[in-house]
Write a protein that binds this DNA or RNA. Sequence first.
DNA 1: ACTAAAGATGCATAATAAATGCATGTTTTG
DNA 2: CAAAACATGCATTTATTATGCATCTTTAGT
Lengths: 141, 141
Amino acid sequence: MKLSKHTDYAFRSLIFLAGQPPGQRVTIQDICDFYTISPNHVSKVIMQLVRRGEVESVRGKGGGLSLARAPEEISLLDIVREFETTLQPIDCAEQPCRIIGNCALQGILGSAVEAFLESLAPYTLADITSSEVQVLRLQAD
Amino acid sequence: MKLSKHTDYAFRSLIFLAGQPPGQRVTIQDICDFYTISPNHVSKVIMQLVRRGEVESVRGKGGGLSLARAPEEISLLDIVREFETTLQPIDCAEQPCRIIGNCALQGILGSAVEAFLESLAPYTLADITSSEVQVLRLQAD
DNA sequence: ACTAAAGATGCATAATAAATGCATGTTTTG
DNA sequence: CAAAACATGCATTTATTATGCATCTTTAGT
């Protein structure tokens, strides 16, 4: 039971963007250099964030990326919901299960996932980027 | 974010066993026939349950499987803990992350997993096998 | 003692999903 | 018009999961 790297990369990209001085644009390359991950991947993740309205991208020479919203307005729950392809702990329909209809397991597991998500709900990007130290580190490249 | 089939098979096997009349033994083959899944897999899952003391196995001719404990004493949380290979939503150590030390994300995700597990804690096998109807269905083969 | 039933276990293979890389297109500034 | 930088699709690789095969061990019944 773990989250996909897409989700991971989304978080990291957002953290990096949040660590920039206001108005500063960074390229996908910058993000990849910092974390040593593949540009192709980050590119796709960023695209999703752009479509969702969390990141602003400017194309062409001199372009780049920046946060489109304040970190306080970017919910960690939303990110998980966006990038996790499945949030069903067990897919009972995948292979036909003969207990269907009387099985309470689905409900119990479903509410456990709900508890997981609920627990993320109060947090925003601001909560994971508040440290001054971290911002300094992000610049120190 | 989903659970492995091992966990799924463990739940199903336990449900099937709990649905048997007291003293009745069933073979791995019975379980596989009922759910149409592979004996090899179930065999390994059952072994883990035997080692943990949830299932009793009798080898040799006329042998078979039965619950070693009352369903009320078999915790769903224990099963998930046993069969999920990883309960870390993001493995920060896998690829070195430059934010380590200042990143609050790990803590937040960690407590979300805790919430997931906590939510399972109150339930036992009895909670997912209480329906009379289900027991009837399990026999009706 | 022998045979068949049934669990126990290790190894090899296949299937699936995730991750990565390559190639190419599009937009925009200078 | 050239270069920078985002945008996107496709192919390949990798890793994990799932499955299947082969073999061993135990035990009841004859």
